[in-house]
Design a protein around this nucleic acid. Structure first.
Lengths: 198, 198
DNA sequence: CCCGACGAAGGACAATTGTCACTTTGATTT
DNA sequence: AAATCAAAGTGACAATTGTCCTTCGTCGGG
């Protein structure tokens, strides 16, 4: 049994994620959290828009977003990442270089995210060894997932890519419109539709 | 005019690369360099082989290599990165996680590379702020180039990918066999051949 | 000097995928 | 309840790309 005066442990996705890499106290987490801003967005709202100055790196608390590049010639979208609870998303290059965004990020559902500026990120990294470590592990995760994604795109045809997606993200399949999944897999909506008819 | 006793500045690709990010003295560079091992490899030799323990991250001094995954079913190769002078290459995930390599890296030409273990990498990072900074910038470069690569693969057909490759790596086009470039672009050798006939 | 290995080009045909048009379904709005 | 709209499935056809095969030229070793 918990002691009567046990302080309430507030469940927090971000704390859990950091904890899994380098365990921190509630006080430390509260300090970290104070460097983030909360943003609530409606479905279809933009988190990052092409040409914007990208002030924040975002951690997703609730909802689902897509990051994509828009082909101006054809008007088509090419989704290169989905982000759901527990994921991070931003235009990484623009964020670090303080350059204009080349990608868009928008909400597929009502969303709630935490944003941190580059300045606060570096401040926390310099102040807390544990956070610095967390960042470097997180950077590796990002790299590895990009590499997996690239491998999926290079290796084989539409069906293989589809199967690989299902295997890697079973929970996204019934959450995201098929047309967006098709864009993520680099095939037309119709082709995707025919794949799982088999 | 240079003073008569000016010490000879040894030209070194790696020093130049570090210098461009955080300038270091010759002494500092000599110290850094002492943490690397030199490897010389003949054409066709493997630098990393699937299943290996990946001990080093490699900086290419001379030569040209390809990093690829082999599809066991079809026996085909999918090249996801070329590496020439001034580039880094390894199986990044395996290197950091100390897991078995899932990719192969082999030499398209006789090569000369510098290798650094994860232990030495971390030692240098901890000892020298400048090197730590260099590593983090380098990590971002790697991420950004992967992202560009992914965008290239997602957006559009074989011709667009080909044009994008030519634009980004004009010097690689006449150095690397077309069949490998085709593999990098995710098309058959024949299709690539037909593209620049137009 | 010839031979074999390799890289490259291209023809013929098959397989894959994209495009367009139409239909159905279910959710949302009025 | 009717109207509207977004999402998804499907058929027909066209465009793209892969596969298989043959030919050609270059380079280096015997």
């Amino acid at each position: 049994m918990l002691p009567i005066n046990n302080p309430i442990v507030v469940q927090h996705l971000l704390k859990d994620q950091i904890d899994a890499i380098s365990p921190i106290s509630d006080e430390e987490f509260a300090y970290i959290l104070s460097h983030f801003v909360v943003k609530k967005l409606k479905k279809h709202a933009f988190l990052v828009q092409q040409g914007d100055h990208v002030k924040y790196d975002y951690f997703v608390m609730k909802g689902c977003l897509k990051a994509y590049v828009a082909d101006e010639d054809t008007g088509k979208e090419f989704i290169y990442q989905f982000a759901v609870e527990d994921w991070w998303v931003t235009d990484r290059e623009a964020y670090f270089k303080k350059s204009a965004a080349t990608i868009n990020v928008d909400c597929l559902e009502d969303c709630e995210v935490l944003g941190i500026t580059l300045e606060n990120r570096e401040k926390l990294g310099a102040e807390m060894w544990k956070y610095e470590h967390f960042l470097s592990v997180k950077a590796n995760w990002g790299y590895n997932s990009l590499q997996k994604r690239l491998q999926m795109m290079i290796m084989g045809n539409a069906k293989k890519r589809y199967e690989s997606f299902i295997q890697q993200y079973p929970h996204l399949y019934n959450r995201i419109p098929k047309s967006f999944i098709a864009s993520y897999l680099g095939v037309s909506r119709e082709t995707l539709s025919r794949l799982y008819a088999l």
